[in-house]
Amino acid sequence: MILGLFCFLSLLTIMSALSVILSRNPVYSVLSLILCFFSIAGHYILLSAPFLAVVHIIVYAGAIMVLFLFVIMLMMRTSDVGLTSWVKRIGSFFVVGVLGVTIVALMQRGTLVLPRYLASVEGSVSSLGRVLFGQYAIPFELSTILFLSAVVGVVMLGKKS
């Protein structure tokens, strides 16, 4: 059952991701991406990281994708501009294919040392919070500065001068 769930979620992830990049309609792309994020959230839950799963949904589905949808709805009066030239398309598929095969081959060669079937860790809110506000307190505070600057920058950009 676990295997089945993993396969179902993975299939959903891959299919929706493909749909993101292949849909002609940007709104479909956004909806597919939301679906993709939900399936990834499912993976997170099954990897015993429920907090991240929920945060993932809140941040991505709740905020980021709304922003995308917003922009698309406001901006896309004309139809989508479509894909690049077929030469570039074939080149891209080729290059990415080579990349993927190479990475998988590198994994098979054992260049990447992977643990197998280890015990999982409890991704509870309190333990994660302890790591986040203990070991990573300073990066966390710095990220708030990043946010602040982003807010200021976006407001400045958004203003019609």
Binding site: P50, V54, I57, A61, A63, L69
Partner: peptide
């Protein structure tokens, strides 16, 4: 164990 966050996430979906 993240029920409150779940609620929050679901509420944010309503907009779609």
């Amino acid at each position: 164990n993240v029920g409150v966050l779940y609620l929050f996430g679901v509420v944010s979906l309503g907009v779609y």
